[in-house]
Design a protein around this nucleic acid. Structure first.
Lengths: 228, 228
DNA sequence: TCCATAGTAAACCGATCTGTATACTCACTC
DNA sequence: GAGTGAGTATACAGATCGGTTTACTATGGA
């Protein structure tokens, strides 16, 4: 363990990752706690794509590695060479979803210019995100229902995303009404989560838009403007 | 199918159900769409108890019938004689939870006397219910994450409970503010669902109480009183 | 030419999955 | 005392689970 000139090898690896579509990493980089552990070879990418689709549609426990490998068009050998265990695929799946969501959300926040509109922009982003890729509700909530053990490496990804969202709402709330930022942030979080759940279960149509209406009501109510 | 004097047999069955703690069934009876299909013998009761506990703690797909039978102290033969299939145990599990919740909620609603306090009583009941038996969040939401097929017989139980809750909130909202009952009922539903999710995932402490605060704000805001 | 990387193909492991079968016991009742 | 309902004990079926192994191929630098 003394004679590894990693400097040389790193250069090679970096050059090979020309097709890696990293999203800059401006506001991201908190995908799951650490850097990606697996080298995303073409086969690994197809595995992750297939696993993500199957996990979300049928549930994590209901999908076996044989099916994932078959859908990805790779053998189980390749799958285990890349990921080592199904558990790791689950972690990558959730971290990937989280990363994508934050990248999707970012331009919505950047476009909005007032604190109020930035808060509402989160709901707009969620609605658009849900309509295009969340027919069965939030991936994190669904995964949490299946992963009971807090020691599971995916658990941190799940709770991490929710904590991040709460911090985001609280930060945005602070800009709008500093005096009640904590409380307002939490209420926004509840409306948002409720919207996601109600949307995923089809309780009533337009659940996320309705959550946005609820948020508007909250913001109109005692907005603590510049003291007039 | 002609010679069954059910009048005689019914009496016997009813006498045997002395230990059955049916809660009158005033507002209930919508447990899952139909009457219980399985005869709840002592063995069956133990199966349902064990399955309920295991399903909730570890997830439905993660628990096998062998484990359920072992935990219940019955053989798989008994289990299959009573329930026929694991699927049916899942249905009974969810219908049972739903029934218990409605029975738990009823006295909270009866004690409250104003429309406003009746709405808040739902959140009070949920907080108490969650603290005593929902460390991992709402059973229905968790089950929905695992059961993707709408044709699954448990699906109707899941969505049925949420629809019932929405109807309850809407009814209560109608007594408080008839003009905006639909919208208010939906927002209350979102806050409530959000509270359940946030509580189950431990996003921040006292999530259901905070949802109640959000509801209070909603009710204070434009309460549409008797026109003054 | 050599060699590491990434992959295919296919068999195999022990364990577990849902579900069924046979054979028997016990308690209660008509 | 025969019959019935509820249960035990145990073995087994066929499939699938996560995971491993051996043998081989294609590719693209150094």
């Amino acid at each position: 363990m003394s004679e590894n000139e990693d400097g040389n090898e790193k250069e090679k690896e970096k050059e090979k990752e020309k097709e890696n579509e990293n999203v800059g990493g401006s506001a991201g980089e908190a995908g799951g706690g650490g850097p990606r552990r697996v080298s995303m070879t073409p086969g690994a990418r197809r595995v992750l794509e297939a696993a993500g689709r199957l996990f979300y549609e049928r549930g994590i426990h209901a999908v076996g590695v044989d099916l994932i490998a078959a859908e990805a068009g790779v053998t189980k050998k390749t799958l285990y060479d890349r990921f080592g265990a199904k558990e790791q695929i689950v972690v990558e799946y959730l971290a990937d979803r989280d990363e994508r969501w934050r990248a999707f959300l970012a331009p919505y926040l950047e476009r909005a210019r007032t604190p109020r509109s930035r808060i509402l922009a989160v709901f707009d982003a969620s609605r658009d995100w849900a309509e295009r890729s969340l027919p069965r509700g939030c991936s994190m909530i669904n995964a949490h229902a299946e992963i009971s053990d807090p020691a599971h490496p995916a658990y941190a990804v799940i709770t991490g995303q929710k904590v991040w969202m709460l911090a985001l709402f609280t930060d945005l709330a602070r800009s709008h009404a500093p005096r009640r930022a904590t409380s307002l942030g939490r209420t926004l979080m509840l409306l948002h989560e409720g919207g996601l759940v109600a949307y995923g279960m089809g309780v009533f149509p337009g659940a996320i838009d309705h959550a946005r209406q609820g948020a508007e009501l909250l913001l109109r109510d005692a907005p603590h403007p510049p003291t007039t």
